Amino acid sequence: RPMNAFMVWAKDERKRLAQQNPDLHNAVLSKMLGKAWKELNAAEKRPFVEEAERLRVQHLRDHPNYK
């Protein structure tokens, strides 16, 4: 299953946050990521939305029978 825009963004952002906050549990990091994503405007999200769409199209090509 291809990543959605949030997952594309969160992949690198989670690493950055975890390095800055090594003692935080994953659940806390996830909440921080969700809050930060909601605060991004459409222009800030656009590159990740476009990458998610590219991944979706590639997934359809690679797995035409996937449901």
Rank of each mutant, 00 (worst) to 15 (best):
L60S: 13
R56E: 09
V49Y: 14
Q19G: 10
N41C: 09
W37R: 02
L29W: 01
L24V: 13
R54M: 02
L24F: 06
P22M: 02
N41R: 07
V49D: 04
R46G: 09
L29C: 04
L55H: 08
E50R: 07
Q19A: 15
A18W: 08
L55Q: 10
L17H: 00
N41W: 00
R56H: 09
F6E: 05
Y66E: 15
R54F: 04
E44F: 03
P47C: 04
E53V: 02
N65Y: 08
R56Y: 07
N41L: 06
K35D: 15
K45A: 01
N4C: 04
V8I: 10
P47Q: 09
R16M: 10
S30K: 11
K15W: 03
N21W: 14
L40F: 04
A5E: 04
Y66Q: 15
N26S: 14
R1G: 03
A42Q: 13
M32P: 03
Q20W: 03
N41T: 15
L40G: 01
K67H: 07
N41V: 03
H25L: 03
A27T: 11
E53S: 06
E13N: 15
L33K: 01
E44M: 05
K11N: 03
L33G: 03
Q20D: 03
L33I: 03
A42D: 12
E13W: 05
N41F: 02
S30M: 14
A52W: 01
V28A: 15
R54G: 04
K38H: 05
E51M: 10
E39L: 13
Q20Y: 00
E39A: 12
E51R: 08
A5L: 01
P64K: 13
K15T: 05
N21Q: 09
R61D: 11
D12T: 10
D23G: 14
Q58W: 03
R61W: 07
P2E: 15
R61N: 12
K38M: 09
F48D: 03
A52Y: 03
L33T: 02
P47D: 08
F48G: 03
Y66M: 13
Y66K: 11
N26D: 15
K11L: 06
W37D: 03
K38V: 06
D23M: 06
M3F: 05
E50W: 05
V8Q: 01
Q20F: 02
R61E: 14
D62Q: 13
E50L: 09
N21G: 04
L24M: 12
Q58N: 07
L55G: 05
R46K: 03
A5D: 03
E51V: 09
L40C: 05
K15H: 13
K38Q: 12
V57F: 08
E44D: 12
K11E: 09
M7S: 13
R56T: 05
G34W: 14
H25S: 15
A5Y: 02
W37P: 01
H59I: 06
R1L: 03
A52N: 03
Q20A: 13
L24A: 11
A52G: 02
K38L: 10
G34K: 15
A42L: 09
M3N: 01
L55S: 07
L17V: 05
P64C: 14
H63C: 11
P2I: 06
M32A: 07
D62V: 08
N26Y: 07
D62F: 08
M7P: 00
E39S: 12
H25V: 05
K15I: 05
K15F: 04
F6M: 05
M7W: 04
V49M: 07
A36D: 05
L29Q: 04
Y66W: 13
N65M: 08
L24E: 05
W37Y: 04
K31I: 06
K45L: 00
L55E: 09
R16N: 05
L29E: 06
K35R: 13
A10H: 00
N4A: 00
R14A: 07
A36V: 05
K15G: 05
L55V: 07
P64F: 07
W37K: 03
E50P: 04
H63D: 11
P64I: 12
S30D: 14
A52M: 00
L55K: 11
E44Q: 09
P47Y: 04
E53D: 08
H25K: 12
H25R: 10
E50Q: 06
H59G: 13
D12C: 02
K38A: 09
R61L: 10
P64D: 13
L40D: 01
Y66H: 11
E44N: 03
H59T: 12
Q20H: 02
E53H: 15
F6N: 04
R46S: 09
Q20E: 12
N4T: 10
L17P: 00
V49F: 12
K11F: 01
E13Q: 09
M7Y: 12
A52E: 07
D12V: 08
K67W: 04
K45D: 00
R46C: 09
K11C: 07
F48E: 09
A10K: 00
A36E: 06
F48W: 08
N21C: 10
P47K: 06
N4W: 04
Q19D: 11
F6Y: 09
V49K: 06
K35V: 08
A52R: 00
N26F: 09
L55F: 02
N65E: 13
D62P: 06
E44S: 10
E39F: 09
E51I: 05
S30E: 15
E39M: 09
A43M: 08
Q19W: 06
M32R: 05
V49C: 06
L60F: 09
R54Y: 04
M3C: 03
K67M: 05
S30G: 11
E13K: 05
D12L: 05
A10Y: 02
F6H: 00
W9A: 01
R54Q: 11
V57I: 07
K45N: 04
D12F: 06
L17M: 15
N4P: 00
W9P: 03
Q58S: 11
K15V: 09
A10I: 04
M3D: 12
V49S: 04
R61A: 12
P47W: 02
D23L: 01
L40H: 03
M3G: 09
L55Y: 06
A5F: 06
F6P: 03
P2K: 15
N4S: 10
A10M: 04
A27M: 08
Q20P: 00
L60Y: 12
A42F: 04
H63E: 14
P2H: 08
K67C: 07
E50T: 05
F6L: 03
R56W: 07
E50Y: 08
F6S: 02
R61P: 07
V49N: 08
E51N: 00
G34Q: 15
V57W: 09
E13C: 06
K45G: 01
M3T: 11
A36T: 07
E39I: 07
P2W: 06
R14D: 00
W9M: 02
A27D: 15
N26H: 14
V28E: 15
P64H: 09
